[in-house]
Nucleic acid binder design. Structure first.
Lengths: 112, 112
DNA sequence: TCGACCTGCAACTGAGAGGTTGCACATGGT
DNA sequence: ACCATGTGCAACCTCTCAGTTGCAGGTCGA
């Protein structure tokens, strides 16, 4: 306990948010969520950046645990792994609820 | 349709995720959620970066709409604005659900 | 076998993020 | 009035991120 904050878990959550904190990656995530599975070339079609840029973004997403890849013949298909999304949501929930409790305490302090 | 996605709303969501995608800022958000309201100096106490670094991070958080400040005598108190957190959660929900639908479609495609 | 297509690696660049230090300015307590 | 404390610039540095281009290596179909 005590020094529970700022642990490896928090770093993983920060990685997830970092991965989602880029417009290009965010649109990649949206496309993957909508299409199910796509190759880097398929994802770069319609994007305004090169295929290599998409590949780098996919690596970031995969390092964060948001995406997995699978070789399918001569192409590589990328798909979402929504589990980490749940971790991020859990973090947001915990901050929101502790914020609510803090509000209560503040209210009582002010009312003295 | 077509250009409906990747709009100003998506940019705002990316800004929120970007703001949360840094370990220092994430711990700031946690501290603010736990304490309710803190000054930059109060936040930098215990952190391993300088007060000025915290101030810059607070500016990023405020630009993303996650934090607001209020002058209180000679110090400036920062507090969470949990509304954007809800927006981020909503985004995660929508990606998750569209992902679930995509999984269904993929399953049916594979079963041909 | 040959050509088309997709991937993988490497080198390079520009811009911005994250951080620091130093100092000036305001404000509260004594 | 004085001093301590907290804030607000501004300049500066370093390192990483996002993106590009070029080319080599697999893999499928004809």
């Amino acid at each position: 306990m005590s020094r529970g904050t700022s642990s490896a878990r928090d770093r993983a959550v920060a990685d997830v948010f970092f991965a989602l904190g880029d417009g290009t990656r965010l649109s990649v995530v949206e496309k993957l969520g909508a299409a199910g599975a796509l190759s880097a070339t398929g994802l770069s079609g319609g994007a305004r950046v090169s295929r290599q840029a998409i590949v780098k973004h996919l690596r970031v997403l995969e390092d964060a645990g948001l995406v997995s890849h699978e070789r399918r013949g001569r192409e590589v298909l990328y798909a979402l792994v929504p589990q980490r999304l749940d971790d991020a949501r859990t973090f947001l929930d915990s901050v929101s609820s502790s914020w609510d409790r803090a509000l209560e305490r503040l209210r009582r302090l002010v009312e003295e």
